[in-house]
Design a protein around this nucleic acid. Structure first.
Lengths: 156, 156
DNA sequence: GTTCTTGCAAAACTTTTGCAGCAGT
DNA sequence: ACTGCTGCAAAAGTTTTGCAAGAAC
C-alpha cells in the first residue's frame, strides 16, 4: 500500500510525524513524549493525566507520573494539546486542536466531541465579537459546552 | 423609602430573603450559610472557596474552611449555586442561576458574565437538540465559554 | 560534552472527612 | 431534646518541584 496521498493525510498521527511535530515546536522527541502524544492523537476520550499514565503503562511504556504532568504542561504551552478543566477537578487533555465543542456528562465527567453546524458557530462568533461587555477583552476563541447525562449514566 | 415594589424586587438578596430561600430548600439558615449566600449574591466575581473564606473573614465572619466547602456543596446540591471548574483547577461559584454565559481569562482565570443575544442562544439550543451525535444523551443545558485575556492581563 | 529529560520521593495545594462541641428547631 | 452545623485537625487526591542519573543533541 503506497502512500500516494501523503499531502491529504492528517498531520502528526504517526510516530515519525510526531517526531517532526515536536521538533517543529522546539521539543525533543523523547520516547515518553512521542508515546504520550501518539496516545492523545489516537483517542477521543479526553483522558486525565492519571488515565494517560495508566494507558501508557498498559502498552508497556513505563512512564512516571511526574513526566506525564511535565510533558502535558509543555505540550499545552507549545500549543499542541488543549487542557480542559473537568467538572471533577482533574484536568483533561485533548490533542484535537481543531474548532470543535464538547458534551460533558455531569454524572461521570465523560467528555465527548460535538460538531455544531457551521452556521451556529459563525453566529456565535459574530455575537461575541460584537458584545459590548467584552470590548475591553482580547478574545481568542469561543467554546460551547453541552451539559447532561451520557448514555451510560442515563441508564443508571 | 418605602418598599412599594416588593414583588418586583429580586428574590433572595437580603438576609431575610436568604433565610426564607434556605428554608425553602430544606437548609437551616445558619449564620455561616446566610453570610456565604449573601456574599455570593452580592458579587459577580465568581470566587473560589478560598476567596469566599477570605472575603467573609474580612467582614468579620470567622468561618472555617471546611464549613465553606461543606456549605458550597450543599448549596450546589440544593440548586441555589452553580459550580464552575476554573481553568486553574480551583472550583468557582456563582449564585446567579439565570441563563447566562461566561468569559474566561486564560491568564489569570478571572470569569466575567456575558449576555448573548437571545437569538444566538436559541439557535444554539436548537442545534444541540438536533445533533445526531447527542441523541443518546440526556441534555440539560448549554454553556458558552468565551476565552481570551481580560483587560488587566491584556495590559500585561 | 553540554543541555534537556526522566522518575523517584517529597512538598504544595485543593477538597473531603471524622468528630466533639455548639446552634437551630 | 433532637437534629443538624461548625470548625479544628487529619486524610485523601491532584499537581508541582528538587535533584541525581540518563538520554538527546
Amino acid at each position: 500500500m503506497a502512500r500516494t496521498a501523503a499531502q491529504a493525510k492528517p498531520i502528526g498521527r504517526e510516530p515519525d510525524d510526531i517526531t517532526v511535530l515536536l521538533r517543529a515546536h522546539g521539543l525533543r522527541p523523547t520516547n515518553a513524549r512521542v508515546q504520550l502524544l501518539a496516545h492523545l492523537f489516537g483517542t477521543t476520550a479526553h483522558p486525565s493525566a492519571e488515565q494517560i499514565t495508566a494507558s501508557l503503562r498498559e502498552v508497556g511504556v513505563g512512564v512516571g507520573v511526574a513526566t506525564v504532568y511535565q510533558n502535558l504542561n509543555r505540550l499545552v504551552d507549545a500549543g499542541l494539546v488543549r487542557r480542559m478543566s473537568g467538572s471533577d477537578g482533574r484536568s483533561r487533555f485533548d490533542a484535537d486542536m481543531s474548532a470543535h465543542d464538547h458534551a460533558v456528562c455531569d454524572s461521570c465527567g465523560r467528555i465527548a466531541d460535538v460538531d455544531l453546524e457551521p452556521g451556529v458557530r459563525r453566529a456565535l462568533d459574530r455575537a461575541t465579537a460584537g458584545d459590548r461587555h467584552l470590548d475591553t477583552w482580547l478574545l481568542t476563541r469561543t467554546a460551547v459546552e453541552v451539559h447532561g447525562l451520557c448514555p451510560e449514566c442515563r441508564a443508571h
